[in-house]
Design a protein around this nucleic acid. Sequence first.
DNA 1: AAAACTACCTGAGTGC
DNA 2: TGCACTCAGGTAGTTT
Length: 270
Amino acid sequence: MPELPEVETTRRGIEPHLLNQVVADVIVRNANLRWPVSPEISELIDQKINQLERRAKYIIIHTNKGKLLLHLGMSGSLRICQSSDDHRKHDHLIIQLTSGKEMRLHDPRRFGCALWTKEDIQQHALIKNLGPEPLADEFTADYLAEQCARSKASIKSFIMQSKVVVGVGNIYACESLFRAGIHPTRAANKVSSARLDKLHRVIREVLAEAIKQGGTTLRDFVNASGQPGYFKQSLDVYDREGDKCHQCQKPIKRIVLGQRSTYYCGHCQK
DNA sequence: AAAACTACCTGAGTGC
DNA sequence: TGCACTCAGGTAGTTT
């Protein structure tokens, strides 16, 4: 499911219900996520939630005693519910608040995680080696050019690496390369600096537009209220194999690159 | 060191 | 209906 826009949409959706609220109880219905949910997560009880931060595709819930590091994996979602609402099969973790509301982590494939940690979040093993946020000032065209010059991996696989830049998953990598007119298999170090400038600009543009639209719902993404996102209608190539290119009318192609489906226009992307 | 591949899981969709 | 098969938005860890 979620790339950066979907995670940011989720963060914004849960924030008004969680910020400054106090945790009444934590219920672990299935601890077998990507890494086991530690029993110490119960230390969240009685804590006030100070901040809801997104870093890459992680959502970090801050309290004075520690932080909860959440990742939604491929199929995870967070929803705000009433405790009287029926549980669904894959509601694995429930954070109940003294307000009477609760947040549920639903994740059929269980590729996500919920880790309770007391260490400085910037020093956490999952966080400290991440590249820049694509929408932050530190992600510049010069930085992207410097990184690309050092790699002959395909540009598509390259921009999906979190050490290069975070949050660009399979959908938005395909869409960004289409907007920049770059063929996905082109080696990173063979993309001209003018086109890397454009790629830098469109990565930010695509992600910002998708956030504005509430993310992309292909199959099962829903926001914290259970509503889908509307960026699917703005997709130019992703999941459009055989359909007409929006620019040249030729059919969109699909190849497999780095084990992932990759969509592009053979005429518009070189 | 970089690049490619594997593993983790369930569910939806397709073809027979 | 049911079975077998393919595919899916992520990423740490292992192998080449």
